[in-house]
Design a protein around this nucleic acid. Structure first.
Lengths: 220, 220
DNA sequence: AAAACACAAATTGTCGACAATATTATTATA
DNA sequence: TATAATAATATTGTCGACAATTTGTGTTTT
């Protein structure tokens, strides 16, 4: 389901991907301890590769580690969610601004038709904003920024953490129609090469989805 | 000279800090290869700890690694600098906005008096904006945001990379007086709890310093 | 002479074992 | 009984060795 397919060449890569998935998807509970020996027997690899995988997860802010004590999966809190979305707002806002400057016409075109196609599905009763569609939208704009460091930052680290929150809070359905409209406006601003507006709209869009999640979080 | 003193508990920490410093300060050249065995003999530690240090540097975007081939220090390019400052602009702009919301009065007070003290030095002919002063200013605002993830992101990763550019381009002196004024205005906006303005001013401030560096970079 | 192949050297990736530290359990003492 | 000191256990940190992969060299072939 990932667009930016990272390919695992080394055994450490595979372990990292697998462990990350199990954490993000909630198979390994938030806040739980990660024992190196336990995981190495479970995945049938040496402790060294598990260690390396955990180190990488730490760099993603998915686990926290204390020296000589060990690593724990981060706990999901309202504060953490807000912090994360503040960062997303800043970075993806900038990405939208840069995309308005740098995204090739052809890519903008494709993004627009993608939205149109999704709109057809909405009219036919299928709910838009099925995770994947939203993801695709955001990812294309991030790539459109053509800022390599920004792309790496968002798609390696922040994205997975954000998904962890959504998954574990059971965010599947809503925000159907409004999200579509918001996407549409953002694309229009990019097509008009209006970076200022694109940034403002993207930031609002992310603020809305933050509020949407925060509401659910407060009910738990 | 670092404010946020990270304390090295493990041998791997020490190696990481030391290696990072040597790279940032230019003792190890940009673009050069990092041999694990070579470094392990140089630092008198095992390859495992060097490996771990390099992995961490990779997460900071200070080195790039290719599987089964090795790690190289990143090369400094104009594009890389611009990308980095675009990210700084987004994140520190957000930090200033949040600081306007969250920074305790006492901290704002201290920041203001700090600037006043520095201004005295400027009047006495000492050049303001000696790296450290600027750094202190930015760091206090970042901390003032009270967004823990943002603080980590900036002070662990981005800051060191930015410093690497400045050091290796020989950015010591200029931007003396204007930078002081800019700082002053930002603090006033924060004191007035005007997050909107604080963000705008901080973003401009960073844009200016980017331009300042980019000029020097273009002359090389 | 250029290209393709085979071989050798060097480097990284992975492993199991040992050392150092933290946690838990036990005993001794007030 | 509660608390402090101590021993036992478990977990992480570090190391050296081996395996896998890449890179460089030399040879063969066209």
């Amino acid at each position: 389901m990932s667009f930016f397919q990272e390919q695992a060449v080394t055994s450490s890569d595979k372990t990292f991907f697998r462990l990350r998935e199990e954490i993000v998807e909630g198979e390994i509970a938030a806040g739980s301890k990660l024992s190196e020996v336990e995981l190495s027997t479970k995945y049938e690899v040496s402790r060294a590769v598990v260690r390396e995988a955990i180190n990488r997860l730490e760099a993603c802010n998915i686990v926290e580690r204390k020296a000589n004590v060990g690593a724990r999966v981060v706990t999901l809190t309202a504060e953490g969610l807000i912090e994360l979305y503040q960062i997303r707002e800043a970075l993806e806002g900038m990405a939208a601004r840069l995309a308005a400057q740098n995204m090739p016409e052809a890519e903008i075109e494709k993004l627009a038709t993608l939205l149109d196609d999704q709109f057809e599905l909405v009219k036919q009763g299928q709910s838009y904003y099925q995770e994947a569609g939203d993801l695709d939208f955001h990812y294309r704009i991030i790539v459109g920024s053509q800022n390599q460091q920004l792309i790496t930052m968002l798609s390696n680290g922040i994205y997975h953490l954000a998904r962890m929150y959504r998954v574990q809070l059971g965010m599947t359905g809503p925000r159907v129609t409004t999200a579509y409209d918001e996407h549409k406006h953002i694309v229009r601003a990019i097509a008009n090469r209006d970076g200022e507006l694109a940034e403002i709209l993207m930031r609002r869009h992310i603020q809305y989805s933050k509020n949407n999640i925060a509401v659910k979080l407060s009910k738990m």
